[in-house]
């Protein structure tokens, strides 16, 4: 198991609905908690992570701030389309520290892409500091 969502593992953020070039979506998968991607107003906000290959997913860990409700979807097609909803999470608000959410997928779940949708927030702006996905490549 390793972080298949990290840019070092060849993953990419292929879509993000907010763009402040000082806080780019690449910060979500750069392996550092110090950098983040920020939403720039209104909800929902979305980003899609595309893996190097089809992966078995064990756990998804999200570090965020001001996120109230987030949904995660997966796609197994080559193109980032045809997503199906995996999980919907209500996240508790935190004061002065990051929110941490873990989604357990059991290891039998495959995905080529994961789509994260921030449905609502505790404030006008929310961040994603890091997404970590424990998994490994599907060997066919």
């Amino acid at each position: 198991m390793f972080d298949v969502a990290s840019s070092k593992a060849g993953a990419q953020v292929v879509l993000a609905t907010s763009a402040d070039e000082e806080y780019p979506p690449e910060n979500i998968i750069d392996g550092s908690q110090d950098t983040f991607w920020v939403t720039t107003g209104l909800y929902p906000q979305e980003f899609v992570i595309t893996f190097q290959a089809l992966m078995n997913i064990n756990t998804v860990r999200i570090q965020s701030f001001n996120v109230r409700k987030i949904t995660v979807g997966r796609s197994v097609s080559n193109e980032p389309t045809e997503f199906e909803l995996l999980r919907e999470k209500d996240v508790e608000s935190t004061d002065g520290q990051l929110q941490e959410e873990e989604i357990h997928c059991g290891g039998n779940l495959t995905a080529q892409h994961l789509k994260f949708t921030i449905q609502s927030g505790y404030d006008h702006f929310a961040t994603i500091h890091q997404v970590h996905v424990d998994g490994n490549a599907v060997h066919s």
Binding site: Y23, D34, F65, G96, Q97, D123, H124, F125, T127, H129
Partner: peptide, 17 residues
């Protein structure tokens, strides 16, 4: 005002990690 709020929040976000 909205822009100002955004800038203020960013300062807060930077202190979180």
């Amino acid at each position: 005002e909205f822009h100002k709020m955004y800038k203020e929040r960013l300062e807060q976000f930077k202190t979180l990690a």
